[in-house]
Design a protein around this nucleic acid. Structure first.
Lengths: 342, 342
DNA sequence: GCAGATTTTGGGAACGTTTGCGGGAACGAT
DNA sequence: ATCGTTCCCGCAAACGTTCCCAAAATCTGC
């Protein structure tokens, strides 16, 4: 009734556990006949190797840790899915933790991962500096770290990201070519590296395309729908006129868009809205969101592959992968043909 | 440079590993003075117990498996979050697998979990019967199984769900009280138990409230946005007139809603839309979705707690938890006050 | 001071694997 | 017949814990 072990198998076959063990890993040092016998018996008795024991022996856990700021987002779950897909075949497991944007919880998670003896960690960090020391300790202890999206700029660690600056610049160009002149930027806190990059592009676009930069249009928002709504509300209250919004993320953009529509503004006629991320959310809202679409699934796959190679001790030539994000022009900035006639 | 082990600690303190081990678990069989000494040294040398070794010894893995049909959904991730929250303090880890609605992959996942020596499994099954045998095997081997949302009706296993029938009936009542007479139901395949329950309520509502039941309004859809769009498209093509939709899930509802709006129909004036699930999606679309809101986070917490108790061998009095879903009346069925005046 | 009770500690097996090392059998070559 | 290979296989240690059992140290009451 209990799961049979190697010993049970050995006893049953009148062999030693060593031979059985070797036979099951197809070691050529075992006679073919015996090997087949063992494998057949293992199959018949329903033998399943005990991973825990194997892990103890090998000093690995065949587990990798993933830390995300927030997992109930299409962003995180798409990446997670990519990671899962990439490692499933190699017999690895994933344990997932979320920091909830709180560096202290992130720290707790990291330490938990350490205890769980993960072979490596994939992390989308929630704060630039807070856990730098711990991350260094991981590296020092030979536990590879791979970053994605939210990187730690102060650490020389492998990373997978998109080119925030370039693509944001393209998006600004899009808005400006549409004739928009007073473009709001909803940015996230400065401890998020990507936000700094995207808003740098926002500012540079002004000089590059000869637009007047108005600091009042640079709005500090947070990361949630509510933050998006609130930012929009503040803009309306300030009675600052604007004809476009470039938001740090889809979430922020949608929050703002919903609020503006409730207040009777038309999207995109009155205000064009563009964002960054390209999560599934961008296509389920109406109008659909013009956004910089990041290859999220691929991001997960790439990060996982990077990590697996690091775990195997492969020396990486290129440890900074920049994925190509693509601009999706949709209804939140461009009217569909049939409506444009009206 | 390597993580210190019990032995290292013992050597350093001139004690035996046994004593050190006991001291660290606060065993009263160790002199208090020694205990403190050991704990202080452990702290100082940065000792972290090796979970793998501990697991091997204890025969547990302190890991639970979770299998969901699809993880890139607000539904799944909310529940997962609940599960994480519930088990984090008990030192458990979660490994997650998704079946992608494919019973064969679900089977592979289950077997993977078995190998990973999970202490228990939480599962939202993707098919009624396909993996019944394997589930029985888990139970037989003493690995507890807990279901949520998508249960297997043929198995006597603990489960956490909401009352699909009652709440669907209430939702139908809502639509009917609004004066809607030709209500479409978008249902999912019959191998999904919840769908059967919800459409049962749909039909029963007709007789209960004296409405004429028209089989043509009972539409077989799938589970995705696209399925929702397609279903809506088919309805328009068939030129079947209808004034409301009750959809199996938010996803389906939003798909249909978007399509109808693109075709110039007004929500809710022309078609009222109600759904079931209450994921975050229902509030980010415009108009917001009237839906039966399930306590997703709580569902995860409850399922996890149930499982933990089962793992600890607690005999459960009540192993069928029915959570209370609440109807959220929103813009997709009711016009906001200001617009109603117009 | 001493027997016995009690507290505190150590020895060592065990969990299920993997793996280096060495032994024995079979075989061909001298 | 002897030696050296090659091929299979078993022994036993190890991974880092936990825990039973017994040994040592300390504490009772006389």
């Amino acid at each position: 009734m209990k799961q049979p072990t190697l010993k049970d198998l050995a006893k049953h076959l009148l062999l030693s556990t060593s031979t059985v063990s070797r036979a099951l890993t197809n070691d050529k040092n075992v006679r073919r006949e015996t090997r087949e016998q063992v494998q057949e018996a293992a199959q018949r008795l329903g033998y399943k190797p005990n991973r825990v024991a194997r892990n103890l022996k090998s000093g690995r856990s065949y587990t990798i840790g993933v830390i995300v700021p927030e997992m109930v987002t299409p962003f995180a779950s798409s990446v997670l899915e990519g990671i899962q897909d990439a490692i499933a075949d190699d017999g690895y497991h994933v344990i997932i933790a979320q920091s909830g944007e709180d560096p202290k919880i992130e720290r707790k998670n990291l330490m938990m991962m350490q205890q769980a003896l993960v072979d490596g960690v994939i992390i989308s960090a929630c704060h630039q500096t807070y856990n730098l020391d711990l991350c260094r300790e991981f590296q020092y202890n030979g536990i590879p770290l791979v970053f994605y999206d939210r990187i730690l700029s102060g650490l020389d660690a492998p990373r997978v990201m998109v080119n925030d600056y370039t693509k944001s610049m393209l998006m600004m160009e899009h808005l400006i070519h549409l004739g928009r002149k007073k473009i709001v930027h909803l940015q996230a806190p400065d401890y998020i590296y990507n936000s700094v990059e995207r808003s740098r592009a926002y500012r540079d676009a002004h000089t590059k395309f000869g637009l007047n930069f108005d600091p009042a249009l640079l709005v500090r928002a947070g990361l949630t729908f509510e933050d998006g709504r609130n930012a929009a509300a503040r803009l309306l209250i300030a009675e600052k006129s604007f004809d476009a919004i470039f938001a740090f993320t889809d979430t922020l953009a949608i929050g703002a868009m919903n609020y503006l529509r409730e207040k009777g503004l038309r999207i995109p006629q009155d205000v064009a809205i563009a964002s960054f991320s390209g999560t599934a959310l961008s296509t389920i809202v109406h109008p659909q969101l013009t956004t910089v679409e990041q290859p999220l699934h691929e991001m997960g796959v790439k990060a996982a592959n990077l990590l697996l190679r690091l775990i195997d001790g492969v020396e990486l030539i290129e440890n900074r992968i920049v994925l190509d994000a693509t601009l999706q022009y949709r209804g939140s900035t461009i009217l569909p043909a049939e409506e444009r006639i009206v």
